[in-house]
Structure formats: C-alpha cells, structure tokens
C-alpha cells in the first residue's frame, strides 16, 4: 500500500542523490571493496601460495615429487587416515553428548539457559593450551594414563562447546508448534523426534560437525601433550613439522604444502558432502 505522493517524493530524492553532484560516482557496491581486498589478500592469495608450493620443489621449479612421496609413505598416509578416523570419532562423541545437552538447554527458561550456557562458554575464554595443561594435571590425579584414550577425551572436552552452540541456536529457533502438531496427529515421542526435531536441526548438526571435524585434524597441540609414549599424532603435526621443524629436521615447505593441500581437499569434499555450499543453507545463521 504505497502512498503515491510519498513515492514520487522518494523517487525525486533518489534521483537527486544518485546524480554525480551528491555521490561522486560512489555506489553501494563499492562498500564491498575492503572485503574483496581482504578476501584476495588473506584467503585467495595464501591458498594460491599453498598450491604453488605444493607443485614446486625447493628450487622453485615444477615438481610432483612431494605428492608421490606423501602418497607412497605409509607413515604419513597412516597419520592422515588416523586423523580422519579420530576426527570422525571425536565429532560423533561430541554430537552424542551435545545433542541431549542442547535439547535440555533449549527447553529451559531463558534465564537458566543463559547461566548454563555461560558454564560452557566461560572455559573457552581461557587459552586452550592452559586448559590442556590443567586437564593433564587432572588426568594425572585420577591416574588416567597418557595415550590415545586421553587424547580423545581431551579433544572432546576442547571441542564440545563448538558442537553445543550451533545445535542450541538451531533448536531454540525451531518452531515448537510443529512438534505439538505432530503429537496431536498421533505420533509418539520417538516418531516426533525422528521425523520432526532431527530433520529440522540438521543444519545445526552439520555446522557443528564442520566446526569439530576439521579443527580436530590439525589440533596437534592437544595430541602432543596427551599422546604419552604410544598415542597417535594428527596430520597437523606433520604440517607443522615440515614447516617449522625441530632440532635437526629437514625443513620441507613444499612437502608441508602438499599435506596442507590434501587437507584442503578433504575439507572441500566434506563441505560439499554435507551441503555446505548450498545457497539455502547460507542464511541459517547457526554458527557461533
């Protein structure tokens, strides 16, 4: 119901505003220039650098030697596969713990939920290396030996909040009347959960999974602290090892870039498989 008089006024104003006298050739789309520059400098350019290093050798000439080396080295491949499996396990455990937690939180009164959420978020304000060290002391007190199990427990502890938050924000926004309608129409509670709640919270599950799965694969600080004498290391350790080295290692930036590229591909594949690129999910707003 537009007011014709107002509409004419507005058009006149816009015409005047859009004339060169007022905007100096500036239009709204120019506002994205800083963002585009940022994108090119800090996203596209580093990615291209990784690709460039991955396909060259130490002298800067084209080479696929590092790819062959990586895919024919059983130790490095094992580390990659172990990282994927560990990341899957950690994601699953986080999901199993986080989903009920998020459901309970979403059913609480706003005030209680806020307090409970703060209990989850506050530890995140402490540096995660410090948290890991504290966790180590705790494990020592309860005589939990360092090793693969301790690493997984520590990883779950560190990433749990990243799973709870997206799930909580999806569940809290969900229209409760849909569940009520399903109940009215005769579905039992299990049926309501499997055919209403779970499908509707899928975006939350996916974005939570993305926030846990990929960082776990590179989170070598935790595995270094908790691996003990026989635990596993994640692939991030190999990348760091190739780039920074330790006393007496052969620093191989190109080899490191190959592993980074392989991880990038895994990331893209998993994003694509979970539908991360679909435009209908773009505005789901479930990230932290």
């Amino acid at each position: 119901m537009k007011n014709p008089a107002k509409e004419i006024k507005r058009e006149a104003f816009e015409k005047e505003f859009k004339s060169k006298r007022f905007n100096f050739g500036f239009s709204r789309k120019h506002l994205c220039i800083p963002y585009a520059l940022f994108l090119v400098l800090f996203v596209i350019f580093p990615l291209l650098l990784v690709v460039f290093y991955a396909f060259t050798d130490a002298n800067g000439s084209f080479s696929v030697y590092n790819f062959i080396e990586f895919f024919s080295n059983p130790t490095k491949l094992s580390t990659l596969l172990i990282s994927v499996l560990v990341a899957l396990a950690v994601t699953l455990i986080c999901l199993i713990i986080a989903y009920p937690t998020a459901m309970i939180l979403s059913k609480m009164s706003k005030h209680t939920a806020f307090i409970c959420l703060m209990l989850f978020i506050t530890p995140m304000w402490i540096n995660f290396v410090l948290r890991a060290m504290a966790m180590k002391e705790l494990f020592y007190l309860i005589h939990l030996p360092m090793g693969s199990f301790a690493s997984i427990v520590a990883l779950v502890y560190d990433f749990l909040t990243f799973m709870i938050m997206p799930l909580y924000s999806t569940l809290i926004k969900m229209d409760k009347s849909l569940e009520e309608a399903a109940l009215d129409l005769g579905a039992n509670k299990v049926k309501v959960f499997t055919s209403v709640t779970l499908p509707l919270s899928m975006p939350g599950i996916l974005s939570g999974a993305m926030m846990v799965f990929l960082p776990v694969m590179s989170c070598y600080v935790i595995t270094d602290a908790f691996r003990g004498n026989n635990g596993f290391s994640v692939i991030g350790k190999l990348i760091a090892w190739n780039f920074v080295g330790e006393n007496g290692t052969l620093v191989n930036v190109n080899g490191g870039a190959v592993i980074a590229l392989v991880m990038l591909i895994i990331m893209f594949v998993s994003m694509w498989m979970t539908g991360g690129f679909k435009s209908e999910n773009a505005g789901r707003g479930t990230n932290l």
Binding site: P74, T75, K76, S78, F232, S233, G248, T249, L250
Partner: peptide
C-alpha cells in the same frame, strides 16, 4: 637427514599395516 627423519617418524608415529591402509 631424510633417512634419519624417516626413521624418527616411523618410530614415533603410528604406521598402519599396508592392507589396512
């Protein structure tokens, strides 16, 4: 160095048997 590094990685990291890979 490459040989020593390979040995170090082999002993420190877990290597799965080829058939598992």
């Amino acid at each position: 160095l490459e040989k020593i590094n390979a040995m170090w990685n082999r002993e420190k990291l877990i290597t799965l048997p080829t058939y598992v890979l």
